[in-house]
Design a protein around this nucleic acid. Structure first.
Lengths: 202, 202
DNA sequence: TGTACATCAGTGAACGCGCGTTCACTGATGTAC
DNA sequence: TGTACATCAGTGAACGCGCGTTCACTGATGTAC
């Protein structure tokens, strides 16, 4: 029943918006601990954040809005992580690999969050999800196109290659955490192997 | 509130075990309709099956046992479907493709069921899941090994190839249903493309 | 500098709901004599 | 063939619980005069 055990200190005047970030953070940590979105209830999130349940209504219209904020922020974090992994890497083939490694690592480090982003949801969808997914997809397309124009890959259709690669990356990100007892090969070499099969690079 | 609208006829004496099958069937249909395991409550399943909630306890110890039965039966159905698709196909390369097609088709036709089987669950795991997954995996390994020994594939390590292929198949089975707005290429040709990249076949 | 007041960041109690589960039961049907 | 009884397939009412949400509130802090 103890959430964040330290008794909360009330935010100073004008700093009330901080609670919003605290709530999202609490929901994220609840999500990862429980492994499922359905455990992220309003009341459990409030407990986790060390506040009373009605306080959440100061920042979110209802539970759905809170969950949507969690999805949005998680997707932004995912996108930032993948794009950030490319920074400073100049060799085009290495850039592609760095992006792929970051993608898969995110899935392994935050399995429940990854599943929330890329696994089927309930009827009502968030527009941001499609947009964010498209942005990460474009990173793959560009990385492959860069390999091709640098003469490092014979790729004639980077979009098509990126689709195949995305399918493989999703498998690598989602399947091992879901089936931990399966004798998976070592991650790093399996991923290199997978990329080599899906997008030939010289 | 109307489940199967036809009023249930009570099972004849000695036929009480039929209700077990009815309950599992009702739970499966509820799962696919709602898209999430958490909607498969005892009471909702009872409504769907047209019985009173306590009647479920004649066949299952509790809700968890009921869900486990659903998972077990769904996995058996999945395994049977994939293995059944190989029957009558003699050419080794075609056998492999037939198995892959059946795998992906199952994912597209029963997205919530597929997600239940291959997506991360809560802490407590079913032993049957690991076993069943291993059996389907072995089908892939054998199909690839057959291609190799028939001289149709240069594969030197069918197990390794099968891991890569499984990762791709999971992507193909899970990602398009989860992101329906993404401009996916046509399924059949995308799958052939994916197989060709992952497991070279002559 | 002092005081009244508005505003802000939250809280506690209560509501109605669907849930899993338990309990005592009902009524049809087969079986023993 | 008739009747008492056991068994079987299932039911209705009730429980305690956690949930989302609403409501009237509290108490600290900045601001106007």
């Amino acid at each position: 029943v103890t959430g964040t055990s330290a008794a909360r200190v009330r935010n100073a005047r004008g700093e009330g918006a901080r609670l919003r970030a605290d709530v999202v953070r609490a929901a994220r940590s609840l999500l990862e601990r429980s492994g499922t979105e359905d455990a992220v209830t309003l009341r459990a999130t409030a407990r986790e954040a060390g506040i009373a349940a009605p306080s959440i209504y100061a920042h979110f219209a209802d539970r759905r809005a809170m969950i949507e904020a969690v999805v949005s922020e998680a997707f932004a974090e995912f996108t930032t992580t993948v794009i950030g992994a490319l920074r400073g890497v100049t060799d085009p083939a290495e850039r592609l690999r760095a992006g792929c490694r970051a993608y898969v690592r995110f899935g392994h480090e935050h399995p429940a969050t990854y599943a929330m982003l890329f696994t089927r949801h309930r009827p009502s969808e968030l527009p941001t999800v499609g947009t964010d997914a498209a942005r990460v997809f474009q990173v793959l397309v560009d990385a492959i196109a860069d390999c091709a124009s640098a003469g490092r890959s014979p790729s004639a259709d980077p979009r098509r290659d990126a689709v195949a690669l995305w399918l493989g990356l999703h498998g690598m990100a989602a399947l091992p955490p879901a089936h931990p007892r399966f004798p998976w090969p070592e991650t790093e070499s399996l991923l290199d192997d997978l990329i080599a099969r899906l997008v030939p690079i010289r």
